[in-house]
């Protein structure tokens, strides 16, 4: 049964106000087409999570769709601190979001625990620091310290996370949602599998037969997937290995725009509200920066030996 749909329909059907949403990516493969659609549909009160958040989470926070953030990190990387994140926390613009602080070890482990049906997971970080002192909306459920039942040593436990919906962008998927990814993974595999259902955004839809030529690359099986959306250029201004490079000038453009509330609003109007979908976005990109700039982002090819699973 085909689950192929448009991003508009996928977000309408599967992302609701107040939902807990996992959003994959690590500069590598952020599902920007989905993020823009969530903003266009003016969702509100979302709880969002993933390790190492960047411009995509900053955009969601600035657009006012976020109530809570289960966080390990948020910055614009090379371009410094997240402007919208700072305005939200420091000045309450557009409103102050609630943040639960974890790290790039504990948070992915919590998603892994969620994916595996474990109630919680022991981790060896955070102890002894002020990460233990700050608790937000998760309250005492943020963590527990116990004496290990095996050797008595103090052991930190953090809870499993099971988001209502996970959204990832991958290189290819079939129409049933078997999703294949390569390159830097971040917490994508566990985050998607921890979620109660998954929206798969992909550069290309391929046949089930193509999936079967390299099944070790599948990170989410079709039975967990609610919707499949073909969105070429769907991770821009992030990158997708084998398809297009990260767009550094656009990163600078976002930084400049998000420096002020007015600039950020203008950015949203131009790149999100003013455009119907990712195809219109790509068209606008080409018109604004020229075909050469668009073409310049396209990845080269460097193949290794083709893999064979034959026996």
């Amino acid at each position: 049964m085909s689950k192929v749909t448009t991003m508009k329909q996928a977000i309408e059907a599967h992302v609701h106000d107040g939902d807990f949403v996992y959003i994959g990516g690590y500069i590598c493969r952020p599902p920007f087409a989905a993020i823009h659609e969530i903003i266009r549909q003016r969702r509100k009160d979302l709880t969002i999570t993933r390790s190492n958040a960047t411009d995509d989470f900053d955009l969601l926070i600035g657009a006012g769709v976020v109530k809570r953030f289960i966080a390990s990190f948020l910055s614009l990387g090379f371009y410094g601190l997240g402007r919208c994140y700072r305005r939200s926390i420091e000045k309450g613009i557009p409103h102050k979001i609630e943040v639960e602080e974890y790290s790039n070890l504990s948070l992915p482990m919590m998603l892994m625990a969620g994916a595996m049906g474990m109630p919680f997971v022991p981790v060896k970080d955070m102890v002894g620091t002020d990460m233990m002192k700050v608790k937000s909306f998760m309250g005492d459920g943020k963590y527990k310290v116990i004496d290990s039942p095996f050797d008595g040593t103090p052991t930190l436990l953090v809870p499993a996370l099971n988001p209502d919906v996970g959204i990832i962008h991958v290189q290819q998927a079939d129409e049933n949602g078997n999703a294949q990814m390569w390159g830097i993974g971040g917490d994508c595999k566990h985050g998607a599998n921890a979620s109660k259902k998954v929206i798969v955004s992909c550069e290309r839809i391929v046949s089930r037969e193509v999936i079967g030529k390299d099944p070790s690359r599948t990170i989410v099986p079709g039975f967990k997937v609610a919707a499949v959306v073909e969105e070429p250029f769907g991770a821009h201004p992030g990158y997708t290995p084998g398809f297009y490079d990260v767009d550094f000038p656009f990163g600078s453009l976002y930084q400049q725009a998000s420096n002020t509330v007015e600039g950020f609003e203008a950015f949203l109007e131009e790149w999100v509200f003013g455009l119907e979908d990712r195809a219109a976005y790509t068209q606008h990109y080409v018109e604004r920066f020229g075909y050469a700039a668009f073409k310049g982002l396209q990845a080269g090819f460097d193949y290794g030996y083709p893999v064979s699973y034959s026996y």
């Binding site: 190492n52 990190f73 926390i89 420091e90 620091t129």
Partner: peptide, 25 residues
């Protein structure tokens, strides 16, 4: 994480990322 008081920071910084576990382990 923050410059100033956590609840009313002068500057909100990125947070731990990988730093806490690297420092711990």
């Amino acid at each position: 994480t923050v410059i100033g008081d956590y609840d009313r920071p002068k500057s909100r910084l990125p947070g731990s990322g990988g730093a806490n576990p690297i420092g711990a382990l």
